[in-house]
Write a protein that binds this DNA or RNA. Structure first.
Lengths: 220, 220
DNA sequence: TAGATTGTTAATCGATTAACAATC
DNA sequence: TAGATTGTTAATCGATTAACAATC
């Protein structure tokens, strides 16, 4: 079978594709074509790596010319599923949850948060950035009825596992968690953990190492 | 030289250390010691990998027993620099910036946001979660005067590069950016980009692959 | 045509995982 | 002692990078 294999792109590739997309959308310099060399230079990457990543989307370029920009944007969006929105539920309408609701960019990434949930009676009933906040105990049934596939967890660490359970029971298959805990889910559910402390550890770890070696006056 | 090499831990190791820390802090089950096998099981990792990660912090365990929990927590905190707080500036007091200011957890990670900056006159002067919002044009001089090392960027994509420039001019050496753009900085500055679209791409990419292969009734 | 660029195969690199001796 | 666990060296795996023929 020789159809475009929408198979499994590696995780690093999936992480880089949005960066290519943002670059191409960002620079409306009227340029009609773009080469891997150009993309690589702008993003500080290896040209061969860019070429392989783009190949994963199924796009075909032309030697000597490169890729047609609009076609490339379309290929990335198609591959990532950003052209038809997926409905998602959000649990937790605190400051982080509200920030996520306020982030207009998600629709651009094919994600549409259609409802938010919270246990706090003071929050339930409110409309945050156009999305209604419902009581958490409605989540399970509503998810099932609306065939929701993606759930976003923005509740405190202590509540995260029970919220994840509710989502799984409601038939949700992908969890995007901002709570700093490791969630236990059945095998058929996919979890992506956004651990801010990890990013911070990378930054401060690198920074310390850098400052330390500078203090020693060398590049050991 | 045989002192504990606080050298360079790999990026994957730096990312996992906070997860170990959260696990150990979370389960005050009164357990005095813990083994790599236990940690690995709780976090779905390989025991050998955990052992190597922990070794990077300089801690020494005891065969047959494991590691003493309080000592291990201390070793991770020491290695990550979480025991003495680093002051940081935040640029952008919008919904995301406010959410970051509201996140009490940062102090636990050795990060103290001491001031926020914004261009919006309606925001300047306000106090958000105990932190004062100052005009952006004060950032550069204040950063220099206060010897700030870490800057957090939570402004719209279009403003991110110029904010990064200001921070670098003020002597900031590490940037933690939530803006979906690739920042250009001098070689001596370290950047950690938090790209939500990348995490979402990983989640939806895996989910699509999973649902697709289920639909075909197999595990191809 | 000459030369830049794609597509692809091979080599390298680094992280993960396996194997095993040392130790309590 | 027996056996679980650490610490470390070796093997494997996957991603990155290099090399190069094909092509416009």
């Amino acid at each position: 079978m020789k159809t475009t294999d929408q198979g499994a792109a590696s995780q690093p590739t999936l992480r880089r594709l949005p960066a290519y997309h943002a670059l191409l959308k960002g620079q409306d310099s009227g340029q009609e074509t773009v080469s891997c060399t150009q993309i690589a230079a702008a993003l500080h990457l290896d040209p061969t790596q860019v070429r392989k990543d783009l190949a994963a989307t199924g796009i075909v370029g032309r030697p000597r010319v490169g890729y047609r920009v609009p076609q490339l944007i379309g290929a990335i969006e198609g591959f990532l599923g950003w052209n038809n929105a997926t409905d998602a539920f959000l649990a937790g309408a605190g400051s982080l949850g509200s920030a996520l609701l306020g982030y207009r960019g998600f629709t651009e990434y094919g994600l549409s948060i259609v409802a938010a949930f919270d246990t706090d009676p003071a929050k339930v009933g409110a409309v945050v950035h156009g999305v209604r906040v419902l009581p958490l105990d409605k989540l399970r049934r509503l998810a099932g009825r609306m065939s929701i596939r993606i759930g976003i967890i923005a509740v405190p660490a202590a509540a995260a596992q029970s919220v994840a359970d509710l989502m799984v029971e409601g038939g949700i298959r992908g969890l995007w968690s901002f709570a700093p805990v490791t969630l236990e889910v059945p095998e058929h559910v996919i979890v992506e953990e956004e651990r801010l402390s990890s990013s911070l550890a990378v930054l401060s770890g690198k920074l310390r190492h850098r400052l330390r070696s500078e203090a020693q006056g060398g590049r050991p």
